[in-house]
Nucleic acid binder design. Structure first.
Length: 573
RNA sequence: GACUCAGUAGCUCAGCUGGUAGAGCACAUCCCUUUUAAGGAUGGGGUCCAGGGUUCGAAACCCUGCUGAGUCACCA
């Protein structure tokens, strides 16, 4: 009866589960199950010598079966990969009773079940290293059928490819799509190698607040929440920059944090509402120094992940070998458009933007115009790793003014494959200038810029005590992971990317139906007929409903006594 | 937010000009003791995303909505 909303295959599996229990086999045993080898260790370690691997224990998920009467092959998948199993009826069942093979293995196990096996390793006639199973145990019965993906000669057939299901049910993606498991291993390795690189330099890994009373450190709209006890508005951080600088004020020479940041903005294949940045601040350094650090660090990541500085990304081969190309923003624009805008005033910039067909509006100041021209004409063309330096001051309220050029700041971005992967400054440590910059942001906010930065009095107080000259960096871990794993979308490097909730069908509780006089055993059938709420039921045509119910009763062989038309009529009214 | 494309069995997909649902894998029953996208025989399985409309008749055509993807916009 509860089976009504299950597919045929799910019903079969639930019946198998019951049958296992009837035979005294616990489908979800509590005991530990220690393995002696992983699939990979067996494949690597096996030699043809007789003595080798007589007795191995392996656990994993059953991924395929080829049953040939009294013998069968199956594939077991553990974290490392797959290993072929050989089940021989008479070896598994030594006596007269063959039910362990004929019933338990052949009928009650399914693809997707997690089992443990003991046996000895051998090589088949076809030359595949396999395990001859002597004993097997059920470790976890699977009640839903897995997508079936087949492969031959590197060709994949019937790949589980629907992006929506892959992201919503990432575990399925990980089970059946082996390359996906590798993407996330690479991501972990990427983080690990950056952490190692920075820790070797004796910088301190720190944690700073995610819930912040004032959001700052970037230009973005925040998520807003509320602390009940304090009765206070809090924001999920959009960056952790200001907190890390307070730690530099506090006397640490180098601090970094792998930070989940949150931005309440549109989603795209480059943007997820929550994403990871690594921010690093080092005292007594400047942005030139930081460029060299980034080069070295990212080059090392490429070497760690690929054993080469060259990484294939889409149609491009990207080479992270140091040193990277460097352009000032003006040079880059001149390089790609042939126009030198470095001496232009606002009017000339506006005209140039129009000539280059860059979309602009009247609210844009000089800095924004330059930024727009750069974004439209250069960014996408920068495929090989490139540093763009010296940004307009208006766009960078936390960066130190350029040591020689008026109107610019000491800032750089690293651009790879047409996208920014990092952003860094010689950090502004002049508290008077910083206050002024915040005040300019306030003016922007008043004009309606909802991403202008808030004035953070607490942060100003800190740097008024004196912050050493400091180089700061934010590097987008997700974007770097995309490049390093040749992924086209940020969703492919996040285990659980943000998705709209699936629409839930409203289902009324059984009591609401029984109150109408409907026997409890009929409620699932009424719901199966499409009337999942009593309100919907009240709209129903009683004669039609009666027919539907009798039909379902017969079709699913439920074996209830059909209600009369009169009875159904009463239910609906 | 705008536009384009898509949603059919557990999975991957067909389904023509509107005539009432198909394949492969998976599943079930049977055969098969070294197979490997195992094979052979037989069979079951569907809210054709949802709701409206047009029509004698809609999976298909039209409208609205939902979900996803892509492009653009916004945004680092």
């Amino acid at each position: 009866m509860a089976f009504l909303d299950l597919s045929e295959q799910e019903i079969v599996r639930r019946k198998a589960l019951e049958e296992l229990q009837k035979r005294g086999i616990n489908p979800y045993p509590a005991d530990r199950y220690d393995v002696s080898h992983t699939s990979a260790e067996i494949k690597e370690g096996y030699t043809d010598e007789e003595s080798a691997m007589k007795d191995v224990t392996v656990a994993g998920r059953l991924m395929s079966r080829r049953i040939m009467g009294k013998a069968s092959f199956a594939e077991l998948q553990d974290e490392q990969g797959r290993i072929q199993l050989y089940f021989n009826r008479d070896e598994i069942c030594e006596g007269e009773d063959k039910s362990l093979y004929n019933d338990v293995f052949k009928k009650l196990l399914d693809i997707g079940d997690i089992i443990g096996i003991k046996g000895n390793v051998f090589k088949t006639r076809m030359g595949e290293i396999s395990i001859n199973v002597r004993e097997f145990v059920v470790l976890s019965k699977s009640l839903r059928p897995l997508p079936i993906v087949k492969e031959k000669d590197g060709q994949t057939y019937d790949a589980f490819s629907d992006p929506e299901q892959r992201y919503r049910q990432r575990y399925l993606d990980l089970i059946v799509n082996a390359p996906v498991r590798n993407v996330f291993r690479k991501r972990a390795k990427l983080v690990q190698s950056i952490r190692q690189f920075l820790t070797d330099k004796e910088y301190l890994e720190v944690e700073t607040p995610i819930l912040q009373p004032i959001y700052g450190g970037a230009a973005a709209r925040p998520f807003k929440t509320h602390h009940n006890k304090l009765d206070q508005t809090l924001y999920l951080r959009i960056a952790n920059e200001l907190y890390l600088k307070k730690l530099i004020v506090g006397g640490y020479d180098g601090v970094f944090e792998f930070a989940k940041d949150f931005r309440n903005e549109g989603m795209s294949r480059f943007h997820n509402p929550e994403f990871t940045q690594m921010e690093l601040y080092v005292a007594y350094k400047d942005y030139n120094w930081m460029m060299e650090l980034v080069e070295e660090m990212v080059e090392r990541v490429a070497l760690k992940l690929h054993g080469s500085t060259k990484v294939q990304v889409g149609e491009h081969e990207i080479d992270f070998k140091r040193p990277w190309k460097r352009y000032t923003m003006f040079e880059a624009i001149e390089h790609f458009t042939g126009i030198d805008i470095s001496k232009m005033d606002e009017a000339a910039l506006t005209e140039t933007a129009k000539k280059l067909e860059v979309e602009i509006d009247d609210s844009m100041g000089k800095g924004k115009l330059i930024d727009e021209i750069f974004g439209e004409t250069c960014e996408a063309k920068l495929i090989q790793p490139t540093f763009i330096t010296d940004y307009p001051v208006e766009m960078s309220p936390l960066a130190k003014k350029h040591r020689t050029h008026d109107g610019l700041v000491e800032r750089f971005e690293g651009i790879v494959n047409g996208k920014e992967i990092c952003n860094a400054y010689s950090e502004l440590n002049d508290p008077v200038d910083q206050r002024q910059r915040f005040e300019e942001q306030l003016l922007l906010a008043k004009r309606g810029d909802d991403e202008a930065m808030m004035l953070d009095e607490d942060f100003l107080k800190a740097i008024e005590y004196g912050m050493p000259p400091t180089a700061g960096l934010g590097i987008g871990i997700d974007r770097l992971a995309m490049i390093m794993t040749n992924s086209n979308s940020i969703q492919d490097v996040l285990f659980f990317p943000q998705m709209r909730p699936e629409k839930k069908v409203l289902i009324d509780p059984v009591e609401l139906y029984t109150e109408l006089g409907i026997p409890a055993e009929w409620v699932p059938i009424v719901q199966k007929a499409g009337f999942t709420t009593v309100n919907e039921l009240k709209q129903a045509n009683p004669n039609k409903l009666h027919q539907q119910l009798c039909g379902l009763n017969k079709k699913h062989k439920i074996g209830l006594q059909n209600p009369t038309q009169e009875e159904v009529k009463v239910w609906v009214e």
